[in-house]
Design a protein around this nucleic acid. Structure first.
Lengths: 249, 249
DNA sequence: CGGCCTTGTGCATGCTTGTGCTTGAATAGG
DNA sequence: CCTATTCAAGCACAAGCATGCACAAGGCCG
């Protein structure tokens, strides 16, 4: 069996089982456990798996319950949110995507900002109801309970009539070659429609999202105008090479 | 089973049961109680659970703002909400108006209720995202910051395409002769459109709303099919005379 | 063809992590 | 105040890990 072939099999198995246990996969594929470990290491580097003690799990934290994602790396998210808020100006129409990091962006908007915020997240709308100067518009449709954003045909239709100056896009997984990906189909439609209707696209991604990939591709990285992240030492050159302005929080 | 996997299971269980008892979870997952304890410790460190003697509880739900209004007569609102929830059944399309009392209704929906809830309140949508069996649809439009509901032309248009089995209507002021009134124009349009598109109309009103009137008239009391309230000794005869079924919480 | 390099693999080596057990302290409830 | 749980800390063992090394297979170039 060829190496690449074996790795493809591991990925298949990861997707069907939802997990990989290194010890039981070795004998199964006829190689030593060390080789499996090296494979998992490679797949983790490519963002296709998340390495844990004893094996590997799917790369996205999207499968986790909502509360878990919200509590994940709160300091990093706040820093990213502050940096992102500085990119928004008076008079703009801001399309604010749902997600735990973008929720922080909503919390950190400049107090006197006079902008119109359009969002698909009920929680962001709740937060911005306390902001005295921004206009808030909520996009309607079906609520996806896992990601807590509005999806479905209605919102795609509603997005058609909106031309936003800037989109703040929450990122599940981003990879220089694969592009921006999510692990749910409906969400991918919504994010794609948002990108299509915004002049600038600012992606917010905590460091653990960088270099990972999920099932559904939304767009290539080159569609972004800005990428706000908190990784101090990651190699951001591949993103810059694609024309993205990288902002370190 | 991988460690991370086990912790995810514990989180799921915490969310579904509302609590974790360490002693009964150990044998269930096939590990010792010490391991469960360590897991709970980790989850508590991550802010995903609150450690208590004997197990764990969900982390303190973030106290949302405008607690002032919500703190107003909470016991009465909860009682009204429970009584209202009993009027809703599987298979119905429920139009759930925004408001502090209707928010309590959302909180008190029967856990296994299989209904579709359509709402104009982002906060109600947030609450129902945690309900496992109801479908949630959010009506889009401009957000009114004072009342925290969606208003405007867009929602009136969206309501046109909805035929609800039952509307749960939040009441600001209700008077047997003047009818149902609110003090904001935009809100009145929305409530009127909701009433027009629902087969049954259940109004929820704490006792202090009874017999008062505000600036903008929405509809006569006779449009209601039910009125849920908590006043034990008020004279409800005028409402009954208008064909409204009065439910005392 | 032969030498050399690269690549992939398996194995041996300490080292780290996760787990169960024991012990003594802390806590809840009568 | 007393008793039964529950907890925290420490210990020991097993599983998992990174690292370095050796060997085999294949490719490249002179």
């Amino acid at each position: 069996m060829l190496t690449e072939e074996r790795r493809a099999l591991i990925l298949n198995r990861l997707q069907s089982d939802g997990k990989i246990v290194a010890a039981e996969l070795g004998p199964d594929l006829g190689v030593s456990i060390d080789t499996i470990r090296r494979d998992l290491q490679e797949l983790a580097n490519a963002g296709l798996a998340r390495r844990v003690h004893g094996g590997a799990l799917p790369p996205t934290s999207g499968a986790l319950p909502y509360a878990a994602r919200r509590a994940h790396a709160p300091a990093a998210k706040a820093a990213i949110a502050r940096a992102t808020a500085k990119l928004l100006h008076d008079g703009q129409v801001v399309l604010l995507d749902g997600g735990t990091t973008t929720l922080e962006v909503a919390r950190h908007l400049a107090p006197g900002l006079r902008a119109t915020v359009v969002t698909n997240s009920p929680e962001i709308a709740s937060v911005l109801a306390d902001h005295s100067t921004v206009e808030v518009a909520l996009l309607g449709g079906l609520l996806d309970k896992a990601s807590r954003v509005v999806v479905g045909a209605a919102i795609i239709e509603a997005l058609r009539s909106i031309r936003a100056d800037v989109l703040v896009l929450g990122i599940c997984s981003i990879h220089p070659e694969v592009g921006i990906t999510v692990d749910e189909l409906e969400e991918s439609y919504v994010k794609r429609a948002m990108i299509a209707n915004a002049a600038e696209v600012v992606a917010v991604a905590s460091a653990d999202k960088l270099g990972s990939a999920a099932q559904y591709v939304i767009a290539p990285v080159s569609e972004l105008t800005h990428l706000v992240t908190d990784e101090p030492d990651a190699d951001m050159a591949p993103y810059r090479a694609l024309g993205v302005e990288v902002v370190l929080a």
